Amino acid sequence: MPFITHETKEQNVDLYFKDYGHGQPVVLIHGWPLSHRAWEQQIWAVVEAGYRCIAYDRRGFGHSDEPWDGFDYSTLASDLHSIITKLELKDAILVGFSMGGGEVVRYCTDYGTDNISKVALISSIIPLVAQKPDNPDGVPQKELDNIMKALQNDRVDFLTDFHKNFYNYDQLKDRVSQAQLEYDWTIAAEASPRATIQAAKAWAETDFRSELKNVNVPCLIVHGDADNIVPIETSADQAAKHIENNTYKIIKNAPHGLNVTHKHELNDALLSFIKQDVKELIA
């Protein structure tokens, strides 16, 4: 299987990735608590549109190594930097789903955008999940604490209901199958328990508001207005206000997992953005 080894003073971490197609590289960064397989409906679309598509597993998830530590966003962004560097990617387009939006923004903060053409935030946690006095639409701390307790006490049971909420399953059974829920559960259940909890702390606690100014390339923001996992008011609405050069697409009645339930709408928006000339997006 293809791996890239991210070598640091502390440890070496092997990151599993898939690399298809040719042309301008599009890097897909998956959400929590899944793997690169969550991008199944987007990988083929990107490749058939004439682009090179790289999708990798975050450390602790999928086939990547499962270290005990290193789930803060700067370390995760350094994993992304290692992939971009070792694959010698130029003019890359970064696409982050949910938690993956954090790697995109922290990459812009820690490494700049000289080698990045565009970015996309899909159902993203950016800029802040938690409810604060200055972020009243965020998720209450009690709910976040309950998630952490459930992950500690019975992670695999928690994941069963989580994925139903991920897709608004009761309302969208015509768009997502029971088999998809079971498939996602299998992927999530096989992830490192430690990584699952530590990564959840990262997306629940990290405040990216001061970093939005570092996203200085064209940015696509896509979010569902029925997202029960990451409320649109605390995420995409704020990101669209503070990322200077953005294209904001709200998908009506779409849940968090719109990459499956509204795959055609997402693919159309993503490919339209990818194909558009950077000069036109900046103008």
Rank of each mutant, 00 (worst) to 15 (best):
A200E: 03
D237Y: 10
K241G: 03
D157N: 11
Y248N: 07
I221Y: 04
I125S: 07
Y20M: 03
K173T: 06
E10V: 06
G101R: 08
D170F: 13
D237A: 10
R175F: 10
L121I: 05
D237E: 15
Q11G: 00
N12W: 02
L80P: 01
D157E: 13
L172Q: 13
S117F: 06
I250C: 05
K86R: 05
P67N: 09
A204N: 10
H6L: 10
G62E: 03
E233P: 00
K90G: 02
K275C: 08
S272G: 15
A45L: 02
D134V: 02
D174G: 11
H262M: 08
T5N: 12
Q171P: 00
F61R: 01
E10H: 01
T109R: 14
T206K: 02
Q42T: 14
A283K: 13
K9N: 13
D277G: 09
S35P: 11
I187C: 08
C219F: 03
I29F: 06
Y51T: 01
Y20T: 12
P25A: 05
L266E: 07
A240L: 08
M99A: 12
G138F: 05
A49Q: 05
P2E: 06
E88T: 11
N168S: 11
V105I: 15
W68S: 04
F166G: 08
L181M: 09
F162I: 01
P67G: 12
F158T: 09
P133V: 01
P136N: 14
D170M: 09
W44T: 12
T261W: 10
D134K: 07
K9T: 15
L15N: 09
N168I: 06
G102I: 02
Y73W: 13
D207A: 09
Q24L: 08
N146I: 00
D145Y: 02
H264I: 11
D277F: 02
H81K: 09
I187T: 08
P2S: 15
D145I: 02
S98H: 14
E211Q: 14
A226N: 03
K9L: 15
R106A: 04
P231K: 13
G224R: 10
T109L: 10
Q198P: 00
I197N: 03
G257V: 12
V104R: 03
L151R: 02
I84C: 13
F158M: 01
D69L: 13
K90F: 03
N135K: 03
I84G: 01
T234P: 03
A38G: 09
K213F: 00
H63Y: 14
S74K: 07
D57P: 04
Q178Y: 06
E211P: 00
R106L: 02
A204I: 05
E66R: 09
H36Y: 06
Q171N: 08
S210A: 11
P193C: 03
A92R: 02
P231A: 12
K213N: 03
Y167I: 07
A130T: 10
K173H: 06
P133W: 02
G31L: 13
N245G: 01
N246S: 14
V278Q: 13
K149I: 08
W39R: 04
D184Y: 04
D154P: 03
Q41F: 12
D72E: 14
A150E: 11
D268L: 15
N115Y: 13
K164W: 03
K18T: 15
Y167S: 12
E40V: 01
G112S: 09
T160G: 04
S177R: 05
N146F: 01
H36S: 15
I229Q: 05
V119K: 00
F61G: 06
G60T: 01
